[in-house]
């Protein structure tokens, strides 16, 4: 029972308190690049969730059984980039062949997150915090959920921004960045929470 509660605390922390975008600033590139429409933002979020969950499981296994026994801790970043890039390619081919419907909705986003820092970040945080396999997968999944929430919320705001009338110098990306900063500050409210 304790184990389940621990996992839930871990997930809540990953989604809100240590939100990948607003607290850790991982994955800002897709966050700004693919957040012009809520629909595409959701697609991107789903793709990240899918890849991050699978990547957490695979990188944990690679680290535990291949890198750690040989004391190759210092090479984990390179190893993870290699594994994640290969994995994303593999998933893309697999989906295209066997789940075309999923491929057509996630397909265009998958190559974009091949070497995304959020995915790599999740893999590295798993090792840094010494999570076990289940914790790693739970962390990867919920961190990606946090990412999805952030990007969808931000896309909703950006739709409204199109009709706003900011000073000329702020039009477009600058006002989007300012808005992102404001949302990040709002999310700092969660950092006051301590649970577990």
């Amino acid at each position: 029972m304790d184990g389940i509660i621990d996992i839930l605390i871990l997930m809540f922390t990953a989604i809100f308190i240590e939100n990948f975008i607003f607290a850790k600033f991982y994955g800002c590139c897709p966050f700004l690049g693919v957040s012009e429409k809520p629909g595409t933002a959701l697609g991107m979020g789903m793709a990240v969730t899918f890849v991050m969950t699978v990547a957490s499981a695979v990188t944990w296994t690679v680290y535990e059984f291949l890198l750690a026994p040989f004391g190759l801790d210092y090479l984990k970043t390179i190893a993870f980039i290699l594994v994640i890039a290969g994995l994303v390619q593999f998933i893309e081919m697999f989906l295209r062949r066997f789940v075309p419907s999923l491929y057509s909705s996630l397909g265009i986003f998958l190559p974009l997150i091949t070497t995304n820092c959020a995915v790599l970040g999740a893999a590295l945080v798993n090792i840094q915090n010494g999570y076990n396999f289940i914790q790693s997968v739970a962390f990867g999944f919920s961190a990606a959920l946090g990412f999805t929430m952030a990007i969808v919320v931000f896309a909703g705001v950006r739709v409204r921004l199109q009709f706003a009338n900011p000073p000329k110098a702020f039009k477009g990306m600058p006002i989007a960045l300012v808005t992102a900063g404001l949302i990040a500050m709002a999310f700092m409210g969660f950092s006051g929470m301590s649970i577990g």
Binding site: L75, A79, G86
Partner: peptide
Amino acid sequence: IPALIFAGLGAAIGILLAVASKAFAV
């Protein structure tokens, strides 16, 4: 040892992708 492990890892992923691209070809 690290060189061999990485070469092995790279080769394994490479072969996996090569096989996959043939097996899953649309």
